[in-house]
Simulated assay, not measured.
Amino acid sequence: MVTQPVAGEFKAFSAVCTHSGCTVSKVANGTIDCPCHGSRFAVADAAVVAGPAPRPLPEKRITVTGGEVRLA
């Protein structure tokens, strides 16, 4: 899951919810949302905003070059 919390700053996180392994489905209103049980994670650091997820989404290393975002 790739977010842009601030213009020009990109972050990437695992798309697997830390609650029960569902795939997070959308980014909206400042959160990354899981459709299975309602967990929400902050777009800036993937911290848990609303549970039942027990931990943040793991961050992934990325590079941004020429408008392309790639896993590092």
Rank of each mutant, 00 (worst) to 15 (best):
V27E: 12
E59Y: 00
V64M: 08
V16S: 09
T65Q: 14
V16I: 15
A15V: 10
H19P: 05
K60D: 06
V27D: 04
G30I: 09
R70L: 14
A15W: 01
R40C: 09
C22L: 10
P58Y: 02
P35H: 12
T31L: 08
V69K: 07
E68S: 12
V48F: 02
I62S: 03
T65A: 15
A12H: 07
R61L: 13
A28W: 14
V6M: 11
V6T: 15
D45I: 02
A47S: 15
K11M: 13
V49Y: 01
V16W: 08
D33Q: 14
A7D: 13
C34I: 09
E9A: 10
V2S: 05
S20H: 02
T31A: 15
T3Q: 06
P58K: 13
V16G: 01
G67P: 09
V27L: 08
A72C: 06
P5S: 09
A42M: 01
V16Q: 11
D33C: 02
V24L: 11
P58T: 12
A44P: 01
A53I: 00
F10K: 08
F41P: 03
R61I: 02
A53M: 01
V48P: 01
H37E: 11
A50D: 09
T31G: 11
K60M: 14
S14K: 05
V27I: 15
P52G: 00
L71M: 11
A44C: 02
F13D: 04
H37M: 05
P56W: 03
V2M: 05
